[in-house]
Design a protein around this nucleic acid. Structure first.
Length: 586
RNA sequence: GCGCCCGUAGCUCAAUUGGAUAGAGCGCCAGACUACGGAUCUGGAGGCUAGGGGUUCAAAUCCUCUCGGGCGCACCA
């Protein structure tokens, strides 16, 4: 079980430093704080060392001693640790550590042995997490705006699974309500038209051509059956939703996005879950009849002051109580959403993560309030990842997306145009709370400026070296080069930097999962590619650094370890973001 | 009017969640690449982190106010 952690050099040194702190505490007759209050990081300046810790500064307050005093004591003690070459005290009391070369090599050994499990952890302890993403309304295919949430949700789910959580990937189908009626009307209208029945077009309808294709399939399946059947509606609705979900699943398939569970709003309502959830709230005195005041500073034409069924969300941090029933007596979306989230709680999730578009920001507080109310005895953590909008740029112009204007970029078009891998990577090149420009020209460009290309190029280059090596030593099995052997010289700067980048992978994974920031993985891969390209080019200036030495197997063996390690981590990282690593360009 | 998100180099973005002299890419300037695979590499210039105040050994990060931008604000989902 401990084995995954063996690859984490930060954990290892945290442990070493903690031992040192304990020895010092005993000597000074002080106590060590329960929590791990100090941290191990990377020094600001590369020349300072490989790792640094703020332990002395943190303990200074606790022990009422100056940071320098503690730092010097720790320095003396740490200097005796075999994994450490040197320790220095700097700045306000930082300890900078230079790690012994053998130690770095031993971590490379761990890395290579762990392979696709490198960076995996048990942090989540098997806790059940529900990640809900995409959840596009089943009224048409996915559009470009759905891509970002789809990718970040998918990658976050992967990261959580990789860090030891039991993850359920979920899609909520909003298959009830007005829009579904409109969908049904549209499909029925197309159906009648295709069968030459002259009917007026519905007041509201979806103009997309995909519904004509669906209408044709309805005819293929059922013929004229529904033309004169007064009870056509339920069947046509069911058919329409199936059709739309089929389109959406095709789009998600093209993106490489998969869900474990598809939850239906309609099924939820029909199973009486809404009544159940609201009864629960009612029994806790959280529902009342009241009158809402209109928002100030915003004019609402047809405001009608009337009593409504309200949830006391202000008791749980919301700004206003929220209505649960519409004026026609049916449930609001919020009411069914409460039921849906209660259902998630009942399914045993201790953590619920929802991916929403930024335009739903105003909805977060009330949902958080509802979850607090629903899980009062056993709090469930709730996170909303609000994905900011993506602007699609073509020929330097923003592509406006508007259903009404008919300029509606379908997700499928974007994927076909630039490829699944480029879409996925690009969606991760920004924190999700920052808007993102998706420039079609840039995404397919083959330059340093295009992160997808740059990372894939690094991987292709790695593979090229592996091929070169195999060709130079046709009789030597590949494993000979993928295991660490004694290193006869001192690492050069680029090698040390590369190793440090390789060894920070587990930490980056952990951070990305914990902070719900999958973009960190994309940035990490760029860093790793940079470090590799740098070492590769250094081989041009200094022949020693060339990876393959056809006449010197020992030198080759020493250098090829880097190549294998980079290959492992790059391909693993790409796999986690759902991208297929390329082994050669073109 | 209220709430949420944001403001970092000319541009596009990072910054190990409170750490050291705030880092990359593009663009600009100066170099290297006679070939393990070609837009790859090495330098340089460029900053009062929108602005004021506060918290502490330490603030881009936390609190507060101001300015500026985005999103949302009964009965759509």
């Amino acid at each position: 079980m401990q084995k995954f952690q063996e690859g984490d050099i930060f954990l290892h040194f945290e442990h070493l430093i903690k031992q040192s702190v304990e020895r010092l505490a005993q000597m000074l007759e002080k106590s060590v704080p329960e929590k791990d209050v100090f941290s191990v990081g990377i020094p600001k300046e590369r020349t300072f060392g490989d790792l640094s810790t703020n332990a002395a500064m943190v303990l200074a307050k606790e022990w009422k001693l100056s940071p320098q005093t503690i730092a010097i004591q720790l320095q003396k003690d740490l200097a005796k640790v075999p994994e450490i070459t040197s320790v220095s005290v700097a700045g306000a009391g930082f300890l900078n550590i230079t790690v012994a070369q053998e130690c770095l090599l031993s971590f490379l050994t761990h890395l290579l042995a762990l392979g696709q499990d490198y960076g995996r952890s048990l942090t989540g302890k098997g806790q059940k997490v529900n990640v809900e993403y995409v959840s596009a309304n089943p009224t048409g295919p996915l559009h470009a705006g759905h891509l970002r949430g789809a990718v970040t949700g998918d990658v976050l789910a992967t990261l959580l699974a990789f860090t030891g959580f039991e993850v359920t990937r979920e899609y909520y189908i909003n298959d009830a309500g007005h829009q579904i009626d409109v969908l049904t009307d549209t499909l029925y209208y197309r159906y009648q038209k295709l069968l030459d029945v002259d009917v007026p077009e519905p007041k509201e309808y979806y103009p997309g051509t995909y519904l004509m294709a669906s209408a044709q399939r309805l005819i293929d399946r059922d013929g004229k059956k529904w033309l004169n059947d007064p009870y056509w509606r339920p069947s046509v609705t069911a058919f329409a939703i199936d059709e739309m979900m089929h389109l959406i699943k095709e789009d998600m398939e093209a993106l490489g996005v998969h869900h474990d569970v598809f939850s239906s709003e309609r099924a939820l309502v029909e199973a009486g879950k809404v009544d159940g959830a609201l009864t629960f709230l009612k029994n806790h005195g959280l529902i009342y009849e009241g009158i809402l005041t209109p928002p100030k500073g915003k004019v609402i034409e047809d405001w009608e002051e009337r009593p409504q069924t309200l949830f006391r969300s202000t008791d749980f941090g919301d700004d206003s109580d929220r209505p649960l029933k519409k004026s026609d007596g049916s449930w609001t979306y919020f009411a069914t959403d409460i039921a849906y989230h209660l259902d998630k709680i009942h399914r045993g999730f201790t953590s619920i993560i929802d991916f929403w578009g930024a335009d739903h920001g105003g909805y977060v507080k009330r949902m958080a309030a509802a979850i607090k109310a629903l899980s009062a005895n056993a709090p469930v953590s709730f996170d909303v990842c609000l994905c900011q909008i993506v602007r699609f740029i073509q020929n330097g112009q923003e592509v406006r997306m508007s259903k009404r204007a008919g300029t509606f970029v379908e997700a499928k078009d974007v994927i076909e145009k630039v490829g699944k891998d480029a879409v996925r990577f690009f969606m991760l090149t920004r924190r999700d709370d920052a808007p993102l420009d998706f420039d079609f020209a840039k995404v397919v460009e083959e330059t340093r400026d295009n992160p997808v290309f740059y990372v894939q190029y690094a991987h292709a280059r790695v593979c090229s070296v592996l091929r070169q090596c195999a060709a130079s030593f046709p009789d030597v099995p590949a494993e000979e080069f993928s295991s660490v052997c004694p290193f006869r010289r001192t690492f050069v700067f680029q090698e040390r930097e590369l190793i440090k980048t390789l060894l920070s992978w587990p930490r980056q994974v952990e951070l990305a999962a914990r902070l719900r920031e999958p973009h960190r993985i994309a940035f990490y891969l760029l860093d790793l590619a940079t470090a590799f390209h740098a070492l590769w080019t250094a081989g041009k200036d200094d022949a020693i650094l060339r990876f393959v030495h056809p006449k010197d197997i020992q030198k080759t063996r020493e250098n090829m370890v880097f190549v294998h390690a980079v290959q492992k981590v790059l391909s693993l990282g790409l796999r986690i973001v759902g991208i297929t690593p390329v082994t050669e360009l073109h």
